[in-house]
Write a protein that binds this DNA or RNA. Sequence first.
DNA 1: ATGTCC
Length: 379
Amino acid sequence: MGNNVHYLSESISWIASDDLWIEGSAIQQLHATANLPGMRRVVGMPDLHPGRGYPVGAAFFSVGRLFPALVGNDIGCGMGLWQTDIVRRKYNADKAEKRLMVLENIADPPWLEAHLPESLAQHPWRGSLGSIGGGNHFAELQQVECVFDEVRFRAAGLDAQHLLLLTHSGSRGLGQAILRQHIATFSHDGLEESSEPARRYLAEHNDALAFARLNRQLIAARLLQQLRATGQRVLDVTHNFVEACAIGGEQGWLHRKGATPDGCGPVVIPGSRGDYSWLVQPVVSETGLHSLAHGAGRKWMRGECKGRMSGKYSPAQLARTGLGSRVICRDRQLIYEEAPQAYKSVASVVDSLFQAGLAVPVARLRPLLTLKTSGGSGA
DNA sequence: ATGTCC
């Protein structure tokens, strides 16, 4: 224990093995968040990277105040995993690619009407339910590459003979609207915990968590229907949210921004779209503020990706990965920003967690076909 | 990240 955990001070730490590179500016942002009023501890995950003012891939524990800006705009973003009935040996990549290629970006209104619960039928943001969105969001068919812990694997409801579907998305425009409105009134100062504005933010935040979870469910439903398949959800874990929590004997607020909770059973830590995803069992621990990494973490800033790669790779080349998987992404900018080269090796991230004693491996999942945005401007 | 800044 304590191995791979680096302390900048008593309140600032990050988790990384010796061979895992973490950008200095992300550590600086971690340092800045530690100075927020009431902040007790901040921990960077192995996928820590710079964000807009605050780092991504980190957990923050404060007492007396909570900070909506630390959760960010995509309130409720997370990972959902489905066990499908697609038989691994019968999977036809060409056929699956053809079917997902023609899937619209946004759900068909009549389809939505038939699939939405009554309570959301008139929701102002209902139109984005069932849509993946942009950035690092995706839906991906995977096959089980190897199982390290057969007991936990089966207990999770998983079976290696059928494909899995992983969805990564959030609350779309809803979360952004909630944060924008909050910042317009309260700036970045945070909220006194028992105040009326805090109560209101938490209510809106909780709605966004449910909205995002339903979004992942409807994304999976649309894809499975398009693939003539069915599936069972085996897990759904949020990595952008704030919750009441006791740390070090003190009651306070635990914010997670790109940090996966350790108390929700097994979780998926996805690599880039050309890398494996890992199913891991978290080890409950205050060392990492009850959190794990949520992905591989960016290596390159979005803005520099196209310049670094467009001379070497065409969009068509990036639609095929080193692991032999396929990527559907008709947004020419996004396909460079989300190329595997722009991300760290997921092995270095999960190894950092394993060596720190914060998680144990359950299974490694191989990507087959990733759907990102279908884009607006055509092929 | 985003019914996105025209």
